[in-house]
Each structure stands twice: as C-alpha cells, then as structure tokens.
Design a protein around this nucleic acid. Sequence first.
DNA 1: TTGGCCCGTGAATCCATCT
DNA 2: AAGATGGATTCACGGGCCA
Lengths: 360, 360
Amino acid sequence: MSNHPPVNQVLLGDCIEMMNSLPEKCADLIFADPPYNMQLSNALWRPNMTKVDAVDDHWDKFASFEAYDKFTREWLTAARRVLSDNGTLWVIGSYHNIYRVGAILMDLGFWTLNDIVWVKKNPMPQMKGVRFCNAHETLLWVKKSQTQTKYTFHYREFKAGNEDKQMRSDWHFPICGRGERLLVNGVKAHTTQKPEALLHRVIASTTNPGDVVLDPFCGTGTTAAVAKRLGRRYITIDREEAYVALAKERLDGVIPTLEEPRAEVFVDAPKPRIPFVSLVESGLLAVGSRLRFGNTDIYASVHADGAISAGGYCGSIHKVGALLLGLPNSNGWKLWHFTDPETGEEKLIDALRPSAVVKK
Amino acid sequence: MSNHPPVNQVLLGDCIEMMNSLPEKCADLIFADPPYNMQLSNALWRPNMTKVDAVDDHWDKFASFEAYDKFTREWLTAARRVLSDNGTLWVIGSYHNIYRVGAILMDLGFWTLNDIVWVKKNPMPQMKGVRFCNAHETLLWVKKSQTQTKYTFHYREFKAGNEDKQMRSDWHFPICGRGERLLVNGVKAHTTQKPEALLHRVIASTTNPGDVVLDPFCGTGTTAAVAKRLGRRYITIDREEAYVALAKERLDGVIPTLEEPRAEVFVDAPKPRIPFVSLVESGLLAVGSRLRFGNTDIYASVHADGAISAGGYCGSIHKVGALLLGLPNSNGWKLWHFTDPETGEEKLIDALRPSAVVKK
DNA sequence: TTGGCCCGTGAATCCATCT
DNA sequence: AAGATGGATTCACGGGCCA
C-alpha cells in the first residue's frame, strides 16, 4: 500500500483487513454504522438450527455477545490505527448493540465527546403494543484519547445556523423516505439506509473540506455520497459486491456543491488576540490614562509597558481584574472601560482590539 | 427477614446488602438512579465568571472502570434476585455510565424492552463551545430474561393519554427546577434530584396500583414519593443517613391521589399536539380529579396515565367524548371542563394546553 | 396588578499557547 | 513535560425587585 490512502474509492473486502492495509492515521473522520445481527436471529437459534427452548440458556446468548464484542473490538482497533491523531470517530446504533459498542469504545481508550440521539419524526410504529415506540437511534462521537486536545468541531458555525443557539445532542430528522431510498428492482436496496441529512450534520460539523472521511460499513454509500457532495474525500468499504457496485453507481451521480469562500468577518467571533500593550504603543490608549473597573468607583492607571495599577495591585489587566473580583482568573478585556476622547462615552477596552489590529 | 417485604419504608444501609436481606422476588418494579461516575477534573467557570456547582460527591467516585463495573454487576445481581418474575427494571444514566450499565445488563441476562431518552427542555449549556450541548439522559427498561412473557405495560392507556398515538421512546420534560427541588438551609439537598414528572411516567406506565416499587438509590426519595402519590407501595434504600431522614420527611407529606375505578369499556382508537397525559404528569391536573362533560351532569375521572373514565367508558378524552355524543369522533380538548382550584371556575381543559407546552 | 430587568442555577467527562 | 498565562465561553426558567 502506498503512503497515500486510496481516496474517493469504494473498496471491496472485509473492513478489518482493508483498514489494516491502509496507511496509518490517514482518516480525519470515521463514521461507522456497524451491523448488529446478534440477537433477534442468532440468539433464538443454535448454530445447528435447533431452536433454543431452555428458559435460561445463558451459554448461547453469552457466546453470541462474545462474538459480537470480539468483532467490535477488532474493527474499532483497526479503525483506531487509521484515524488521524486529530481525528474523531462516530458510531451509530440502536439499543441492540450501542451499549456494547459504547463500553468497548471506553475500554479501548476512546473518550466520549457526546452521545447524540437521532429522534425520528416518523418511526416505524410498535406493532404489538407491548413496548414504547422505538423512535430514536443513538450516535456516539468520540476522540482517540482523553488527552487529545485537537479535533474539528464547527461550533460557532452550527450555532449561527441554529438560531444563534448552540446545537444540542437531540437531532430531529425524518427517516430515509421514498424519494431518497435506493431501490433495486423496486425493492429497497438496503434495510437500514440512513438519511443524507443525518450524515450532512455529522460531516459538516466535524470535518473540513478536503478531509478524508472513512466509512468501514459502506452499505448504500450514504456517508461517501454526502462526503463527496460536501467537498470532502472519502474511503468506504463493504464486503458485499452488490453494495460496492450500488455505491459506486450512486457516487458517480453525486456532484460536489461548492461553497463560496466564507466572508472574513464572522459575526460573534472572538476578537483578534493582541497584547494589551499594543493599545498603548499605537496611541489608542495614552500612558497614564485611567480605566474604570466595571461600573465601580475603582480606576486603574495605564503604564507604558502595558501593566496597570489599581487597588494597590500592579499587573496585567487580567490578573488585577481577577484579584479585584476575588477569582483565580478573569478576562480583563471585558472588565475595564476607557473614556472615548471624542464622544466622552465609556466603552470596554475590548472595543479597541480591532482598531489595534488594523493599525498593527 | 420475614416473608413479607418491609414496604413503605426508607431503609438505611448499603443497597446491595439491604437488597440481599429482602425476600426474593418481592418487587414488581425496580427504578435505579445509580452514581454516574462523572470523572470530572478541573473546575468549570461560566462566561459570567461564576463557578458551576459540579457533582463532586464522594458517592460518585470510583477508582476505575473495573471498579465501576464490579459495583454495577453487584447491585444489578442483587436487584435481579428481588425482582418479581413478572417485574421489570429501569436504570437512568448519562453517557458516562449508561453504556457500561447497558452492556452489563445484557451480560446478566436482562432483556431490553426499550431505551428511552429524556430530552431536557432546559439543559445546562455547553460552556466552552467545544461539544454539542448535552441535552438528554438515557433510561433503560428491561425485563429479567428474553423468555419472560408477562410484564406490566399500560400501552393502551398511555396511547389514550397521548392523543391516541402510541407513546414514543423520546420523552420531553424540563429538569428539576426551583420549586420542586428540595432545599436544606437554602442549599440543594441533593445534586441530582430527578423531576417527579419523569418518575410519574415510569411508574404509571409500568406498574399497577398496589405494586411494590423498589429504588436502591433513594437520594431525595423522588421514586418513593411518586409511587406513594400514585397508590403504589415502595421500598427505598440509601446509605446516607441524611438522605434517609430527608426522604422520610418528604414521604410523610405525600398524600396519595386516589384514582376512581376504571370504566369497563376501554375505547381504543386512533387521533392527534400536546399529549393529554402531560397535564397529569406536570401536575396541572391531579390524578383522580373530575372533568365535566360540557354543561351536563356527566363527570369523568382522570387516571394517572391520561386515560379518563366516564359514563361506563374508559379511554382518551376524545374517544370517551365521542361515545357520549354518539359521534364517531370528537375533539376532547373542547368538551371537558376542569375546576380551577384557585378560582373555582370551570374551564375547558383546552385552556391548560399552553401551560403544558411551556412546561414541556 | 403587571411587565420588564436582573440574577441564580442545573449529573459537565468543557481551552490554547507559550515558556 | 509541566506550569504559567491569556482570554474565550451559556440557555431556559423561575424568583425577586422595581417602576
């Protein structure tokens, strides 16, 4: 295998073997929708196709849980190897498998960022009236380790797209409907095809354009299709030739929708980081000028080196502010006010930061 | 220990030992809110520079995942012994623990009926903008084994109380706020008190009046309080004397709200905005309160699950109303009147819907 | 009485960079 | 590598105060 991963391809084969043949740390994001076929079918029948009738035949169930756990550990271990050190991983599942997957993720050292519930607008009803209608699925979003500090998350952008409120852990989407669902000879091509809207939120929120998105359980290729549409690269794997063929055909029809470049000024973005002293150096604040602490009677005087003096303390705007507040730390930019020499208005020194950058 | 369980008591002691000292199979329902093993490290400050009052209670400290798993296996094993063969068990948790709990439940032979997501209307925000806002918790509802055939589930009644649509796995309740939260000397008595509305839905949907409800992690006694209010018996355990004393005092103040007997004929039929049961869960309508049918002499009584009984029929506000009118269907919101406890005025229950929406 | 504003607070695995 | 420093970051609801 080359040093460069085979991007924008649908690979045929066992996902564990295929991932192990890819270069290390080549994926920026992994999204996985693994099978969970261990209970409803397997647990009812023994391997020799006799029906399990014992009331508490734990052996059979235990064996199939173990097999599922082994499979899960193996594909997650392979996934971990190909995941970039700044990458994150998503797994989707239902109550049949997600608890086992979640526990194994923790055991392998992954660290949970969020669990997300996909609340279905139109779930399959509960036919027999013996349970609550199962109207959601669960996604786990994890990083490689507790100590990993960097990962991609477009918090600010999704907040802007969500009525200026931070995006929550409950996501509301309809299930994959008739217009979206892939059919082969009039019957659905895959039983658990996921809606593109769900993958859109996953990929758009936790990757950047150009990133490599890996899906080890391709199916109809929804992950790869949304990745391609959003200008990401993809690698996806399935061991069924039929799915590989289907996904390739689907992907051929996907045209990336190019975003225009983002405007320079993001409203509500943090101010540029500048040293406080540059306000003094640039003349925006005169040496010796006075800063009011909040709306109190406490004033600080500005020194030529960017330190300030107030209440008997000399130090940074942050440290002096924190001491006056009795807190371990503070953001001095949001505490101190200067008097605008033109209007006589009192304003936060925070308002001077953009000017200082322009002046540089 | 006697053959009869010590019902309607708050027991002081380790829940594993205490459960092992109870008679076998004495509980019809177990609801457990175990420690979540939150693993918090540093203090968290809000943007307004106040400190988040974190859950740093000693009872939430575990040395490792293994220690937490061992604890979980032990209390679940003890719970299994005291759970009736027709009983079911609920556990609530967050992503910190629920995946481990779920896997262990399966390993012990419990069989999942549903996982339920409690979607919080008003969660604590994500302070640092580095994740999605964690806006839900998860409940697991399980039976003792795959082969268990009998358990209590008031499917029809909750469907009747939910606009004639089957109750789903996503439950929307606000968190336990001021007003409901117990205070001791002005500070919260417990860091993780659960809202009564949540327990109402659990207990009303999966037990019958007179059933024994066991909660091994009593805390402020919410489970027992709701059980008592709904005419169930309770056993609850805590190893902290302070919590036991608090719960006892709380329970002394709880008066059971008696339901009238259910009418013989249950009307079951399909129709739809706010589930009527929300009015009951949120306390806007008391269990057992009476609703007047138009300006007639006919009165209905309200059941804990949102069904009503009147004129010999039990069912939704819509279907019972329709039968009384001799029509195929009706809008129950426009038919039934309640008496405002403050003014003594009769008003349409429709008038309560906005309040319920706000609460939701 | 009512409406508006301010403040407190809730199960939270919650920073980035430089020295 | 660990510690110090700069400075970025929140939503819904209820209660109390004041006009």
